[in-house]
Design a binder for these strands. Structure first.
Lengths: 127, 127
DNA sequence: ATATCATTTTCGCAAATGTCTAAATGAGAT
DNA sequence: ATCTCATTTAGACATTTGCGAAAATGATAT
Protein backbone atom coordinates (compact mmCIF):
# COMPACT_ATOMS: atom_id res chain seq x y z
CA UNK A 1 0.00 0.00 0.00
CA UNK A 2 1.25 3.44 -0.83
CA UNK A 3 2.08 5.88 1.93
CA UNK A 4 -0.46 8.58 1.17
CA UNK A 5 1.45 11.83 1.32
CA UNK A 6 -0.40 13.11 -1.75
CA UNK A 7 1.16 16.51 -1.92
CA UNK A 8 1.59 18.46 -5.09
CA UNK A 9 5.31 19.15 -5.24
CA UNK A 10 5.72 20.50 -8.72
CA UNK A 11 3.61 23.28 -10.17
CA UNK A 12 4.31 21.95 -13.65
CA UNK A 13 2.44 18.67 -13.53
CA UNK A 14 -0.59 18.58 -11.30
CA UNK A 15 -0.38 14.95 -10.31
CA UNK A 16 -0.22 13.58 -6.82
CA UNK A 17 3.19 12.85 -5.43
CA UNK A 18 3.33 10.02 -2.98
CA UNK A 19 6.69 10.16 -1.34
CA UNK A 20 7.47 13.82 -1.40
CA UNK A 21 10.58 13.81 0.74
CA UNK A 22 11.96 10.78 -1.10
CA UNK A 23 11.39 12.51 -4.42
CA UNK A 24 13.08 15.63 -3.08
CA UNK A 25 16.06 13.62 -1.88
CA UNK A 26 16.45 11.84 -5.21
CA UNK A 27 16.15 15.09 -7.11
CA UNK A 28 18.93 16.46 -4.92
CA UNK A 29 21.05 13.40 -5.68
CA UNK A 30 20.46 13.81 -9.41
CA UNK A 31 21.52 17.42 -9.37
CA UNK A 32 24.99 16.27 -8.35
CA UNK A 33 25.37 13.94 -11.33
CA UNK A 34 23.32 15.97 -13.77
CA UNK A 35 26.20 17.89 -15.24
CA UNK A 36 27.71 14.71 -16.68
CA UNK A 37 24.48 13.34 -18.13
CA UNK A 38 24.32 15.41 -21.31
CA UNK A 39 27.84 14.36 -22.26
CA UNK A 40 27.13 10.77 -21.34
CA UNK A 41 23.97 10.81 -23.42
CA UNK A 42 25.92 12.27 -26.34
CA UNK A 43 28.42 9.45 -26.11
CA UNK A 44 25.65 6.88 -26.05
CA UNK A 45 23.85 8.51 -28.96
CA UNK A 46 27.08 8.26 -30.87
CA UNK A 47 27.40 4.58 -30.04
CA UNK A 48 23.74 3.89 -30.72
CA UNK A 49 24.25 3.28 -34.40
CA UNK A 50 25.45 0.11 -36.06
CA UNK A 51 27.43 1.95 -38.71
CA UNK A 52 29.48 3.83 -36.14
CA UNK A 53 29.97 0.72 -34.02
CA UNK A 54 31.31 -1.04 -37.10
CA UNK A 55 33.65 1.87 -37.75
CA UNK A 56 35.05 1.62 -34.23
CA UNK A 57 35.49 -2.13 -34.46
CA UNK A 58 37.10 -1.85 -37.87
CA UNK A 59 39.52 0.83 -36.70
CA UNK A 60 40.23 -1.18 -33.57
CA UNK A 61 42.40 -3.29 -35.85
CA UNK A 62 44.42 -0.34 -37.08
CA UNK A 63 44.08 2.80 -39.12
CA UNK A 64 42.23 2.91 -42.44
CA UNK A 65 41.65 5.48 -45.15
CA UNK A 66 38.14 6.79 -45.67
CA UNK A 67 37.38 4.85 -48.83
CA UNK A 68 38.50 1.58 -47.30
CA UNK A 69 36.24 2.19 -44.32
CA UNK A 70 33.47 2.83 -46.84
CA UNK A 71 34.16 -0.52 -48.46
CA UNK A 72 34.08 -2.28 -45.11
CA UNK A 73 30.73 -0.65 -44.33
CA UNK A 74 29.24 -0.96 -47.80
CA UNK A 75 28.00 2.64 -47.84
CA UNK A 76 28.94 5.81 -49.69
CA UNK A 77 32.23 7.54 -49.03
CA UNK A 78 30.24 10.68 -48.23
CA UNK A 79 28.18 8.92 -45.59
CA UNK A 80 31.32 7.30 -44.22
CA UNK A 81 33.10 10.63 -44.01
CA UNK A 82 30.10 12.08 -42.22
CA UNK A 83 30.09 9.36 -39.58
CA UNK A 84 33.86 9.56 -39.17
CA UNK A 85 33.50 13.26 -38.54
CA UNK A 86 30.92 12.69 -35.84
CA UNK A 87 33.21 10.27 -34.06
CA UNK A 88 36.15 12.60 -34.50
CA UNK A 89 34.28 15.69 -33.33
CA UNK A 90 33.69 14.04 -29.99
CA UNK A 91 37.34 13.11 -29.77
CA UNK A 92 37.11 9.36 -30.15
CA UNK A 93 38.93 9.20 -33.48
CA UNK A 94 42.12 10.84 -34.68
CA UNK A 95 43.12 11.44 -38.26
CA UNK A 96 46.33 11.68 -40.23
CA UNK A 97 46.93 13.12 -43.68
CA UNK A 98 49.07 11.35 -46.26
CA UNK A 99 48.89 13.09 -49.62
CA UNK A 100 45.28 13.16 -50.64
CA UNK A 101 44.50 10.25 -48.39
CA UNK A 102 43.16 10.67 -44.86
CA UNK A 103 43.70 7.89 -42.38
CA UNK A 104 41.54 7.50 -39.30
CA UNK A 105 42.31 5.59 -36.13
CA UNK A 106 40.82 5.12 -32.67
CA UNK A 107 42.10 7.80 -30.34
CA UNK A 108 40.88 6.34 -27.05
CA UNK A 109 41.71 2.84 -25.93
CA UNK A 110 39.32 3.39 -23.06
CA UNK A 111 36.43 3.60 -25.46
CA UNK A 112 37.21 0.19 -26.92
CA UNK A 113 37.42 -1.23 -23.42
CA UNK A 114 34.06 0.27 -22.54
CA UNK A 115 32.61 -1.24 -25.70
CA UNK A 116 33.92 -4.65 -24.75
CA UNK A 117 32.50 -4.26 -21.28
CA UNK A 118 29.07 -3.31 -22.51
CA UNK A 119 29.16 -6.21 -24.96
CA UNK A 120 29.76 -8.53 -22.02
CA UNK A 121 26.76 -7.03 -20.26
CA UNK A 122 24.63 -8.03 -23.23
CA UNK A 123 26.09 -11.49 -23.48
CA UNK A 124 25.57 -12.29 -19.84
CA UNK A 125 21.98 -11.14 -20.14
CA UNK A 126 21.43 -13.71 -22.87
CA UNK A 127 22.43 -16.39 -20.40
CA UNK B 1 52.23 6.66 -49.12
CA UNK B 2 49.28 4.50 -50.06
CA UNK B 3 49.90 1.01 -51.43
CA UNK B 4 48.11 1.31 -54.76
CA UNK B 5 46.03 -1.83 -55.08
CA UNK B 6 43.13 0.20 -56.52
CA UNK B 7 40.73 -2.62 -57.07
CA UNK B 8 36.99 -2.26 -57.02
CA UNK B 9 35.84 -4.73 -54.39
CA UNK B 10 32.21 -3.80 -54.02
CA UNK B 11 29.83 -3.36 -56.92
CA UNK B 12 27.75 -1.00 -54.81
CA UNK B 13 30.10 1.95 -54.57
CA UNK B 14 32.47 2.47 -57.45
CA UNK B 15 35.32 3.95 -55.51
CA UNK B 16 38.86 2.70 -55.44
CA UNK B 17 39.79 0.39 -52.61
CA UNK B 18 43.38 0.63 -51.51
CA UNK B 19 44.04 -2.31 -49.28
CA UNK B 20 41.72 -4.90 -50.66
CA UNK B 21 42.91 -7.88 -48.66
CA UNK B 22 42.99 -5.84 -45.46
CA UNK B 23 39.44 -4.67 -46.09
CA UNK B 24 38.39 -8.25 -46.78
CA UNK B 25 40.01 -9.44 -43.56
CA UNK B 26 38.34 -6.73 -41.49
CA UNK B 27 34.98 -7.43 -43.08
CA UNK B 28 35.45 -11.07 -42.13
CA UNK B 29 36.25 -10.03 -38.56
CA UNK B 30 33.18 -7.85 -38.40
CA UNK B 31 30.91 -10.64 -39.56
CA UNK B 32 31.78 -12.52 -36.39
CA UNK B 33 30.73 -9.68 -34.11
CA UNK B 34 27.98 -8.32 -36.32
CA UNK B 35 25.16 -10.31 -34.73
CA UNK B 36 25.65 -8.47 -31.44
CA UNK B 37 25.87 -5.00 -32.93
CA UNK B 38 22.14 -4.35 -33.47
CA UNK B 39 21.39 -5.23 -29.87
CA UNK B 40 24.34 -3.21 -28.64
CA UNK B 41 23.22 -0.23 -30.72
CA UNK B 42 19.70 -0.59 -29.29
CA UNK B 43 21.09 -0.51 -25.78
CA UNK B 44 23.12 2.59 -26.57
CA UNK B 45 20.16 4.29 -28.22
CA UNK B 46 18.22 3.61 -25.06
CA UNK B 47 20.96 5.14 -22.94
CA UNK B 48 21.45 8.05 -25.32
CA UNK B 49 18.77 10.17 -23.69
CA UNK B 50 19.09 12.27 -20.58
CA UNK B 51 15.56 11.50 -19.41
CA UNK B 52 16.18 7.76 -19.45
CA UNK B 53 19.58 8.15 -17.81
CA UNK B 54 17.90 10.11 -15.03
CA UNK B 55 15.32 7.38 -14.64
CA UNK B 56 18.03 4.77 -14.22
CA UNK B 57 19.94 6.88 -11.71
CA UNK B 58 16.78 7.65 -9.78
CA UNK B 59 15.75 3.99 -9.65
CA UNK B 60 19.30 3.04 -8.70
CA UNK B 61 18.32 4.31 -5.25
CA UNK B 62 15.30 2.04 -4.99
CA UNK B 63 11.91 1.49 -6.56
CA UNK B 64 9.51 4.33 -7.33
CA UNK B 65 5.95 4.62 -8.61
CA UNK B 66 5.38 6.20 -12.00
CA UNK B 67 4.08 9.52 -10.76
CA UNK B 68 7.01 9.98 -8.39
CA UNK B 69 9.41 9.29 -11.23
CA UNK B 70 7.51 11.91 -13.19
CA UNK B 71 8.02 14.39 -10.37
CA UNK B 72 11.72 13.65 -10.24
CA UNK B 73 11.98 14.21 -13.98
CA UNK B 74 9.64 17.16 -14.19
CA UNK B 75 7.75 15.76 -17.20
CA UNK B 76 4.29 14.36 -17.81
CA UNK B 77 3.25 11.05 -16.31
CA UNK B 78 2.42 9.90 -19.82
CA UNK B 79 5.89 10.69 -21.10
CA UNK B 80 7.39 9.06 -18.02
CA UNK B 81 5.35 5.92 -18.53
CA UNK B 82 6.45 5.86 -22.14
CA UNK B 83 10.14 6.00 -21.24
CA UNK B 84 9.71 3.45 -18.47
CA UNK B 85 8.14 1.11 -20.96
CA UNK B 86 11.06 1.48 -23.35
CA UNK B 87 13.49 0.59 -20.58
CA UNK B 88 11.29 -2.27 -19.44
CA UNK B 89 10.76 -3.65 -22.94
CA UNK B 90 14.47 -4.16 -23.28
CA UNK B 91 14.58 -5.87 -19.91
CA UNK B 92 16.48 -3.29 -17.90
CA UNK B 93 13.61 -2.41 -15.58
CA UNK B 94 11.19 -4.59 -13.66
CA UNK B 95 7.80 -3.57 -12.38
CA UNK B 96 5.56 -4.51 -9.48
CA UNK B 97 1.87 -3.84 -9.02
CA UNK B 98 0.44 -2.62 -5.74
CA UNK B 99 -3.20 -1.72 -6.09
CA UNK B 100 -3.45 0.89 -8.78
CA UNK B 101 0.14 1.87 -8.26
CA UNK B 102 2.95 0.48 -10.38
CA UNK B 103 6.45 0.46 -8.95
CA UNK B 104 9.50 0.27 -11.17
CA UNK B 105 13.00 -0.79 -10.23
CA UNK B 106 16.28 -1.54 -11.98
CA UNK B 107 16.37 -5.17 -13.01
CA UNK B 108 20.06 -5.39 -13.91
CA UNK B 109 22.83 -4.41 -11.55
CA UNK B 110 25.20 -4.95 -14.44
CA UNK B 111 23.66 -2.06 -16.28
CA UNK B 112 24.33 0.32 -13.41
CA UNK B 113 27.91 -0.89 -13.28
CA UNK B 114 28.31 -0.32 -17.00
CA UNK B 115 26.91 3.17 -16.56
CA UNK B 116 29.42 3.91 -13.84
CA UNK B 117 32.21 2.56 -16.02
CA UNK B 118 31.26 4.69 -18.98
CA UNK B 119 30.98 7.71 -16.71
CA UNK B 120 34.57 7.10 -15.63
CA UNK B 121 35.62 6.97 -19.26
CA UNK B 122 34.20 10.47 -19.72
CA UNK B 123 35.76 11.81 -16.58
CA UNK B 124 39.23 10.55 -17.39
CA UNK B 125 38.91 12.12 -20.83
CA UNK B 126 38.34 15.49 -19.20
CA UNK B 127 41.71 15.12 -17.49
C1' DA C 1 -22.82 -0.31 -10.90
C1' DT C 2 -20.49 3.91 -10.54
C1' DA C 3 -16.84 6.93 -9.32
C1' DT C 4 -12.10 7.81 -8.67
C1' DC C 5 -7.52 7.78 -9.76
C1' DA C 6 -2.80 5.78 -11.31
C1' DT C 7 -1.18 4.18 -15.36
C1' DT C 8 -0.94 3.10 -20.25
C1' DT C 9 -1.92 3.85 -25.02
C1' DT C 10 -2.99 6.62 -29.11
C1' DC C 11 -2.40 10.52 -31.93
C1' DG C 12 -0.02 14.38 -33.62
C1' DC C 13 3.82 17.19 -34.24
C1' DA C 14 8.38 19.32 -33.97
C1' DA C 15 13.11 18.09 -33.92
C1' DA C 16 16.88 15.01 -34.83
C1' DT C 17 19.08 11.28 -37.55
C1' DG C 18 21.14 8.49 -41.54
C1' DT C 19 21.97 8.15 -46.16
C1' DC C 20 22.03 9.57 -50.85
C1' DT C 21 23.30 12.82 -54.86
C1' DA C 22 25.73 16.68 -56.29
C1' DA C 23 28.83 20.33 -55.59
C1' DA C 24 33.07 22.07 -53.27
C1' DT C 25 37.68 21.52 -51.40
C1' DG C 26 42.54 20.03 -51.29
C1' DA C 27 46.56 17.82 -52.73
C1' DG C 28 49.42 15.49 -56.04
C1' DA C 29 50.49 14.72 -61.17
C1' DT C 30 50.90 16.22 -66.05
C1' DA D 1 47.75 26.24 -64.92
C1' DT D 2 45.03 22.22 -65.51
C1' DC D 3 43.61 17.55 -64.52
C1' DT D 4 42.66 13.78 -61.49
C1' DC D 5 41.04 11.85 -57.57
C1' DA D 6 40.25 11.28 -52.30
C1' DT D 7 37.72 13.59 -49.14
C1' DT D 8 34.45 16.87 -47.26
C1' DT D 9 30.39 19.72 -47.31
C1' DA D 10 25.66 21.05 -48.74
C1' DG D 11 21.00 19.96 -49.84
C1' DA D 12 17.22 16.86 -49.91
C1' DC D 13 14.44 13.19 -48.25
C1' DA D 14 12.62 9.42 -45.53
C1' DT D 15 12.74 7.58 -40.92
C1' DT D 16 13.00 7.88 -36.06
C1' DT D 17 12.46 10.05 -31.64
C1' DG D 18 10.60 12.66 -27.52
C1' DC D 19 6.97 14.87 -25.62
C1' DG D 20 2.23 16.71 -24.62
C1' DA D 21 -2.85 16.26 -24.89
C1' DA D 22 -6.55 13.35 -24.83
C1' DA D 23 -8.64 8.89 -24.71
C1' DA D 24 -8.46 4.12 -22.93
C1' DT D 25 -7.37 0.70 -19.34
C1' DG D 26 -7.26 -1.38 -14.75
C1' DA D 27 -7.97 -1.54 -10.07
C1' DT D 28 -9.88 0.04 -5.75
C1' DA D 29 -13.54 2.23 -3.07
C1' DT D 30 -18.41 3.76 -2.36
Amino acid sequence: MATSAKVIVSPVCNVTCFEQEKVARIKAELVKEEHLLPQLAELYKLLGNVTRLKILLALAQGELCVCDVAHVLGITVAATSHQLKLLRDQGWLAMRNDGKMVYYRVHSEGLLKALKGDCCLLEERLA
